[in-house]
């Protein structure tokens, strides 16, 4: 070859800039995790290493309740939103072009664009009225709200996967005596699985992380991990918060890593 192709890694200073960015991104989290092993009670005052705050957190009933709520909420919301997202993705890629397809695409992705606080305020009005009328104050409202904003996060990877799939595979299945349902079960679904999995994981993490909508909609005494942490931060700032935050961080990292591994293996 007469001309070497442009390669950004060959530019001078690339390594330095990249390392600086990584450090800036991850140093706060590293400090957080570091201080979660602090023996002292007061934040930012190092008094030796200890795991006692992890022990304290695991015996804190309020934290455990919040964690359980978060898990139930994230699991339910991401399962339902992944289901809807899969159906929506199939409908927008596996049908002939229809009127309003573009509009559907925009509407589906709208929760990504609308400021979360606006959605929260809109929901709090409706939910408040329903709570008054029905007297129901359970997790249902949070599940419904989380499902709503999780759909686009699940939809995007699933749709991307469907668009990359060779359409002639489904034609071939139909040619080989497979009914539509059999084709879906034996061909479309297995090939789509990595997309569905990463959609599900993404929705799960987004739900697990949500603070604003959860804080607006929760009933009294109801807490998710983020709302619990927010409350604790306002009242008593101890190293236990660092331990809890570290656990939350670990969960997110595990999920993202799991999704990455699952998607990679299937290809």
């Amino acid at each position: 070859m007469s001309k070497r192709s442009f390669d950004v890694t060959r530019l001078p200073g690339t390594a330095v800039i990249a390392m600086t960015c990584f450090v800036i991104l991850y140093i706060p989290m590293a400090i957080l995790v570091g201080y979660s092993f602090n023996a002292g009670k007061v934040i930012g005052n190092w008094e030796g290493a200890s795991v006692k705050w992890y022990g304290a957190a695991l015996q804190n009933q309020a934290f455990l309740n919040a964690a359980l709520n978060s898990l139930i909420l994230a699991t339910t919301a991401s399962v339902i939103s992944t289901l809807f997202a899969t159906m929506a993705a199939l409908a927008t890629t596996r049908t002939e072009k229809f009127r309003g397809e573009g509009a559907i695409h925009i509407i589906l992705n709208q929760p990504l664009m609308v400021p979360e606080i606006v959605l929260a305020i809109a929901l709090v009005i409706i939910v408040g009225q329903i709570k008054q009328m029905t007297g129901y104050t359970g997790l249902g409202f949070l599940i419904a709200a989380h499902t709503t904003f999780c759909i686009p996060f699940a939809y995007l990877p699933i749709r991307a996967r469907l668009e990359g799939m060779d359409l002639s595979l489904e034609t071939a299945a139909a040619d080989l005596y497979a009914s539509r349902f059999y084709t879906f079960r034996r061909v479309t679904l297995p090939l789509l699985a990595p997309g569905i999995l990463s959609g599900f994981m993404l929705a799960f993490v987004v739900s697990l992380d949500d603070l604003i909508i959860s804080d607006f909609l929760k009933s009294p005494g109801q807490d998710t991990l983020p709302t619990y942490l927010m409350g604790e931060l306002k009242r008593n700032l101890t190293s236990e918060i660092y331990a809890i935050s570290s656990l939350l961080l670990l969960l997110s990292v595990l999920i993202v890593a799991g999704s990455w591994v699952a998607t990679r293996k299937k290809d």
């Binding site: 034609t171 299945a173 080989l176 005596y177 034996r186």
Partner: peptide, 26 residues
């Protein structure tokens, strides 16, 4: 009537044997 496609359209997630068995299983 069965077809041999220009792109072959073999099912990438199946083995050779599973590909061939597909029509009979369906």
């Amino acid at each position: 009537v069965n077809t041999v496609f220009q792109s072959y359209a073999l099912f990438p997630h199946m083995t050779v044997g599973q590909n061939v068995a597909f029509a009979l299983e369906a």
